[in-house]
Amino acid sequence: MSAGAKAPLSAGARAQRRLGWALCAPAVVVILAVTGYPIGYAVYLSLQRYDLRFPGDSKFIGLANYGTALTSSLWWQALAVTAIITVISVAIQFVLGMALALVMHRALIGRGLVRTVILIPYGIVTVVAAFGWRYAWTPDTGYLSGLFGDATPLTSQVWGIAVIILAEVWKTTPFMALLLLAGLALVPEELLRAAKVDGATAWQRLTRIMLPLMKPAILVAVLFRVLDSFRIFDSIYVLTAGAYDTRSVSILGYDNLFTALNLGVGSSLSVLIFLVVALVAFIFVKGFGAAAPGGEDR
């Protein structure tokens, strides 16, 4: 056993490194150019007084923009609305998605048909789907407008949020269902038969066998949906445009830029939203042990 303990990298390993970096470089550059730099720029802007209406009046003002944002009831309301939409819609998506996944997994007939059809809501442009719902509830025009008497759902906060959640659930339950279906495929059929022989009812088989085994798939699916719901923008823009106190944080950030034209405050909102999302992701990964997809390649 001669030296060799701290052998320098062999030619092959060095070539592999170089190739690995070379292949990843373009993707990394694009990703960093559009996220790393701008988010840094956003942090910088958020520390400035920067109003597009008065561009000459820019100057460094420290954390004042954050103060403005955090003391504004608009921010807290938008955060609350976003949280409500996220929690309720993901909860409904999970229950419906699970049911849908079970149907696709177990159905005696029409599995392929169902799988094809549920991809349509997934594929439809969110804005288009939102228009579909908007005109469904528009008084006189829509087929659903008479459902609750003379109510005009899109002109009140509670009903507005309800319709937003409906649109969100309709659009993204299929995605949840497909992720859960893939998780279901990981539950060995034999285990379910064994549980049946052991005397477990269908409900017990679901809660005691399937769900625990599907936990990794469920956590990934829920994490994806939570973070995606948190960014909700398109449907609200079309359905209520944020009126009647139905603004999400994304709508608020957008409004601050394009309606109020205040880049400083808008940027501080951007940073705050980013921090909230990072916090939620952190809680999921650390608290529930959600595996990062693709993260465990070994």
């Binding site: 690995g20 990843c24 948190f230 960014r231 951007s270 939203i273 980013f274």
Partner: peptide
């Protein structure tokens, strides 16, 4: 190659990134 895990983490981060945060910058 070194940095592979960082890259995987980075892509994951981007997948969850709130796009509205980038709109202003």
């Amino acid at each position: 190659f070194p940095g592979k895990r960082v890259l995987i983490g980075l892509t994951l981060l981007i997948a969850m990134f709130p796009q509205v945060s980038l709109v202003s910058p």
